[in-house]
Design a protein around this nucleic acid. Structure first.
Length: 568
RNA sequence: UGGGCGAUCGUCUAAUGGUAGGACAGUGCCCUUUGGAGGCACUUGUCUAGGUUCGAAUCCUAGUCGCCCAGCCA
């Protein structure tokens, strides 16, 4: 497994109850000398999202801490919802997160064994074939407060059950006509124990086993036994399966097989984010987003395309922690870890998103020069590069105000600022178009301030970025914001839909940003900090002649805060 | 209204009968050739009521509130 030692160290600094349980089991030799074994068991019916990242990290990192192993197992017991596309994407995403599994498994690997075990339970008088319809089974189940009623088929002879079940497998009966049920207790206060269905008839083609089977095991019958086959010692799953634990144990005990144990923990929730597979699928199918990897999606593939990094995701998930409470983590925490990671690693570049032309009147026409710029001030080993400078440059529209508001330190008439790594300039005049908008700012520069410092020790209050007009490359910039505009988008009033909470401004496209020429070399996936603006990465939609950049996150903007406060 | 699980700063999470700590967010100051980054400081919390104890976030009792469960989904 590929995790950095510093990370597992970090995760160790703070305790969590899962680690405590494993440590206790190791200490008491609950599983003898057997190795700690975990598994990450997604159903291949959708793409992995940031919530899965938590389950992945927990399973892989915890096992690793105890010298154990982790399998990737596809819980593929429902052929109607599962596809190879999802199997492929899940493997890609787990690897991208930085983990390598011990074994790649499928619940469908165990269909034969599961069938044999079902026969064993029938022979023991602990399972029976029920002819009731789905509707009748539902009615017999009782309610939360009333016990269920036994099916009239519950006490069928063992030989008849055996015969019927074998014929179910042989394909003699249509879908829905019969099921195999465990014979437990129709009066149990736990609905999962009221003779749960073990097998249903489904004449569907499975993405791996094809038409080999027409009966498929239910989750409850397949999961624990799959764990047991793989000798999983700690089967960690989310809280909603807590009610299934007695059934998980019932099957294992009545089969007399390896005693895997289920432990539940809380799912990850993040503000302004939806992690329901059903709803994410709906966003894709209704084309509310461009696909599973739309950079606004909370899927791992979407976040990867957006520019999120596995290092940041792991640090976030580990720091958010694990417990048994239903909380919702502030998305700012995720963003913090992403900025923290990129701040350390991302190369800096100058890019003007919304260009305003600026002319330096006393800079010789036709002259050009190169200024030396650090690739990453946080990392001297990243080196420097030469950036062309000339008489006409682009600056950000936001960096000039004809009438500066209070505390505005950037360019305005008569004010002097620093052009990053270049010269001090002072704004002298503006040129406006017919509608009165400023189309050009004219300045003078101080030739003695080359590099960004004046020999007389004169200070300026701000530094702005720039790109030489003659050398700039044009690019498309996609500014992504939160997909939803409310902290809990799934929380919808009566009659409403989560779609009502979609943020209409989640994507803004800037068709003609001006970038420093070095960015022409950037390749898909490359990540940058555009100084003073934010973190960006090259989108795969880019071509040789035209780059497309995705904004991962903006930089923290304290001016925006000042402005907002003044406005309020 | 049956069963299960849970409740600690605004948010997430530690403290396992012995100083309520960390992270994010927020606030202020310092520093700064990114209004970035960084540094320093500060604010805010044990659901309620009883009880046990020298001592309770932790144990007990009773409440309150929240989440999950009635698929031939997982």
């Amino acid at each position: 497994m590929t995790i950095h030692s510093s990370e597992s160290q970090d995760s160790r600094t703070s305790s969590n109850f899962l680690r405590d349980i494993i440590a206790e089991d190791v200490c008491t030799k609950k599983y003898g000398d057997a190795v700690i074994q975990t598994r990450f068991p997604p159903e291949p019916n959708g793409y992995l999202h940031v919530g899965h990242a938590k389950a992945i990290c927990i399973n892989f990192i915890l096992a690793d801490e105890f010298g154990g192993k982790t399998n990737l197992r596809f819980d593929d017991t429902n052929p109607e919802k599962e596809e190879q596309e999802y199997v492929d994407s899940i493997q890609r995403d787990v690897r991208w997160l930085g983990f390598e599994w011990e074994r790649l498994c499928y619940a469908s690997d165990y269909f034969g064994q599961l069938y044999e075990w079902a026969l064993q339970l029938i022979r023991a008088g602990k399972a029976y074939v029920d002819d009731l319809s789905a509707e009748e089974i539902r009615q017999h189940r009782g309610t939360l407060t009333e016990p269920g009623k036994e099916s009239p088929f519950r006490n069928r002879a063992i030989a008849e059950n055996l015969d019927l079940f074998q014929r179910m497998k042989a394909g003699e009966f249509p879908d829905g006509s019969r099921v195999l049920r465990a014979k437990i207790d129709m009066a149990s206060p736990n609905l999962n124990m009221r003779d749960p269905v073990m097998y249903r008839i489904l004449h569907a083609t499975h993405h791996r086993t094809g038409d080999e089977w027409c009966i498929y095991p239910m989750y409850d019958y397949a999961h624990g036994q799959s764990d047991s086959v793989e000798r999983v010692t700690h089967s960690m799953c989310s809280l909603e399966f807590a009610d299934h634990q007695p059934l998980y144990r019932w099957f294992i005990e009545n089969l007399g097989i390896f005693p895997s144990q289920q432990i539940e923990f809380d799912r990850l929730s993040v503000t302004y984010t939806l992690l329901s597979k059903r709803k994410l699928l709906q966003l894709v199918q209704e084309k509310r987003v461009s696909g599973w990897d739309d950079p606004r999606m909370p899927t791992l593939s979407g976040m990867r395309r957006r520019g999120f990094t596995p290092e940041a995701l792991r640090a976030f998930v580990l720091t958010a922690g694990v417990s048994r409470t239903n909380g919702i983590v502030d998305i700012e925490m995720l963003e913090h870890f992403q900025r923290d990671d990129l701040n350390r690693r991302a190369r800096r570049a100058m890019a003007v998103l919304r260009p305003l032309k600026l002319v330096i009147d006393n800079y010789p026409e036709g002259q050009q020069e190169f200024v030396e710029v650090a690739n990453n001030p946080e990392d001297p080993t990243a080196g420097t590069r030469q950036v062309p400078f000339s008489r006409e440059i682009y600056i950000e529209q936001d960096d000039f105000r004809e009438v500066p508001p209070p505390k505005y330190y950037r360019l305005s008439p008569g004010k002097e600022v620093r052009l990053r790594n270049a010269y001090f300039i002072t704004a002298q005049s503006v040129i406006k178009d017919a509608t009165g908008s400023i189309v050009e700012v004219h300045c003078t520069y101080d030739p003695a301030s080359r590099g960004g410092n004046s020999p007389d020790g004169r200070k300026v209050k701000s530094t702005i970025h720039w790109v030489s007009t003659a050398h700039a490359i044009s690019a498309e910039i996609r500014l992504y914001d939160k997909l939803f505009s409310t902290p809990d988008p799934g929380d919808v009033p009566e009659g409403g839909s989560f779609l009502d909470n979609l943020n209409p401004a989640s994507l803004e496209i800037l068709a003609d940003a001006k970038l420093e020429p070095s960015l022409a070399e950037a390749q898909a996936g490359d990540q940058f900090q555009f100084e003073r603006v934010g973190y960006f990465c090259v989108d795969p939609d880019s071509s040789e002649i035209r780059k497309v950049f995705n904004r991962t996150l903006p930089l923290k903007d304290s001016w925006a805060k000042i402005e907002k406060k003044a406005g309020a």
